[in-house]
């Protein structure tokens, strides 16, 4: 046993995947930058990493970027919070009370399957182009993942564990505390990952439609005025935010629920 403990894999072997991935990303940007040494560069059609970086520095320096992000963040978080507050209890009730589940499940499936984003024009006109309109779109798109996963989480509660806790003298509250919440919670966190993605779409849709500020508005306006360096910059910022949010939740899932590792 001792001999096995001492032998450690090399640094390169341990971090092979991360190193290769990082290398690929650097390679991609380097190739992007270098390709214009060979093909003519048309700033009205494409940008390159050096210009994008400069554009981003500008946007950060002037404070425009943070202003737009802050404007977009408000409806994003309001809509998400509303989706959690409505979706989770609804899903739990649907799972716990079979008849409620029977009644609402087909309805929810149809809503979830339909491209509800198609209602966006209506919602924008009805609720206005400000925070409330965007927040409602966010809510409409993000609420269904919470409903479905909370529902699935309750249904996945293990009868055996309930019997175990009860046989050890646990009461109703102990069941909730020791079995039901821990088994539903991972589902809800997992659904927040999906919901975040949909909420981002919602914010962008709302801001593409009609807005005077916000990150979605910035992207579409920079496109209109052919400021491609800034447009690419903003797109990259959205990509980074999206990755950080979804991967962050994934990381939190692994950290908070280590017993659920799929590998």
């Amino acid at each position: 046993m001792a001999e096995q403990a001492i032998v450690r894999p090399t640094f390169a072997a341990r971090y092979r995947k991360i190193l290769l991935g990082g290398f690929a990303v650097i390679l991609f940007f380097a190739a992007w930058q270098a390709i214009f040494l060979f093909v003519p560069f048309n700033p009205l059609f494409i940008s390159k990493p050096s210009l994008i970086a400069a554009g981003l520095v500008d946007l950060i320096g002037s404070g425009d970027l943070f202003h737009d992000l802050a404007v977009s963040a408000v409806p994003f978080f309001i809509g998400l919070a509303a989706a959690v507050i409505v979706g989770v209890p609804l899903g739990i009730v649907m799972g716990w009370r079979p008849r409620v589940g029977y009644a609402l499940d087909p309805l929810m499936t149809v809503f979830y399957a339909s491209p509800l984003v198609a209602l966006a024009p209506l919602l924008v006109i009805f609720f206005g182009v400000g925070v409330s309109g965007k927040a409602v779109i966010v809510f409409v798109l993000a609420v269904f993942p919470f409903i479905f996963n909370a529902h699935a989480g309750v249904r996945a509660v293990d009868q055996l564990l309930i019997n175990v806790v009860r046989s050890l003298g646990g009461g109703e509250w102990d069941l909730y505390r020791m079995v039901i919440f821990p088994s539903v919670l991972p589902y809800i966190v997992a659904s927040s990952r999906i919901a975040v993605g949909r909420a981002l779409i919602a914010v962008l849709v709302g801001e593409f439609f009609a807005a005077s500020e916000g990150i979605g508005y910035a992207i579409s306006r920079f496109g209109d005025i052919f400021a491609l360096d800034r447009m690419f910059g903003c797109i990259l910022v959205v990509m980074v935010i999206a990755v950080v949010l979804t991967e962050g939740i994934r990381w939190a899932e692994r950290a908070a629920f280590p017993w659920r590792t799929r590998q």
């Binding site: 059609f45 496109g223 052919f226 491609l228 959205v238």
Partner: peptide, 30 residues
């Protein structure tokens, strides 16, 4: 292939997490 997997992974993660909509203005331009 674990090599291709490692090299493509960052791009797949990024594009999958990002709402495709943000590319629309760019694609309309192109």
């Amino acid at each position: 292939s674990s090599l291709l997997n490692a090299m493509f992974d960052p791009f797949i993660t990024a594009f999958n997490a990002t709402p495709r909509l943000v590319f629309l203005p760019l694609l309309m331009l192109w």
